[in-house]
Design a protein around this nucleic acid. Sequence first.
DNA 1: CGAAATTCGTCAGCATACTGACGATCAACG
DNA 2: CGTTGATCGTCAGTATGCTGACGAATTTCG
Lengths: 158, 158
Amino acid sequence: MQAMTKDRAIGLFTRPGFLVRRLHQIYVAIYLKECEAFGTTPVQSSVMQVLIAQPGLDQAALAAEIGVDRTTTSNVLSRLEKRGLICREADPKDRRLRRAFLTPAGEQMLGDMQDALDRAHARLVAPLEPEEREAFVRDLTTLVESNNGQGRTVLRIL
Amino acid sequence: MQAMTKDRAIGLFTRPGFLVRRLHQIYVAIYLKECEAFGTTPVQSSVMQVLIAQPGLDQAALAAEIGVDRTTTSNVLSRLEKRGLICREADPKDRRLRRAFLTPAGEQMLGDMQDALDRAHARLVAPLEPEEREAFVRDLTTLVESNNGQGRTVLRIL
DNA sequence: CGAAATTCGTCAGCATACTGACGATCAACG
DNA sequence: CGTTGATCGTCAGTATGCTGACGAATTTCG
């Protein structure tokens, strides 16, 4: 009984959940190195990438777009606003909404960091062979789409 | 130029780093549902699983074992200690070390939650076909092992 | 043996990420 | 037109996860 528990414990490295946590952690480290010059985090650049494609999105829609809680999104926007990279303005039609926009400085920086972003994503999956890599990203997408809708944070799938 | 940035932004869902962040988030949600009755987090049960296999591990070694910072490990242990699931005692030989042990209550609970843990891991990769699933977990392992050693937090690979 | 380097645990500070709750606002329905 | 329900943003609280810094203890090496 004890032995069985012990055996299962040793297999931590074969557990998908454990591996995904660790890989995410590794991605954050890679990102921070590649984007060191810009001083941003992965979620911050995700927000900016969504905003350049859909300017004036309100915070709840933005949250759904990147699969993050409303509260977290609000905090992230506050930090970006403090740095002058985005701005928020209340919608006069629906006064519940606060719409977010990239500032010119934000647009400029996002453009400047594209290569660094590409490198970060590429480095994460670089150890795989090209066909493996393709299959891996496809499986990731399958899992994210199939398991979407667990809890308050639901990613808006196109 | 603007258009190019825009196109790349739209491809958020094809970015490995973004997908890994989201999948980790989903795993946490699945875990919390399956292990609701125990009130633990993924990292807390990882710590307990390591401690049942290696009782008396010091905090730095424990941190390396699960790939987490010393500071975080210390905080996690404090919470587990407050609940009476683990205990810490100073090593008389090397007074820098604080060794951690599961309490009987901790061992009991870890045993009781094995099925829930198995279900959480299984649900994460359930949408994949068996062969896909095997390849996916293998690729995850490859990426974690290849990219290990980015920053202060280094997972001790067996 | 003694100074220098290393290691361990902790503290402060910051950035995700969640839940539950709240007031403000808007939409839907009778 | 007014009440009910839903939605939006925010607040408070909690749990990872990181960096930089620190004191205490140990190890290394001249």
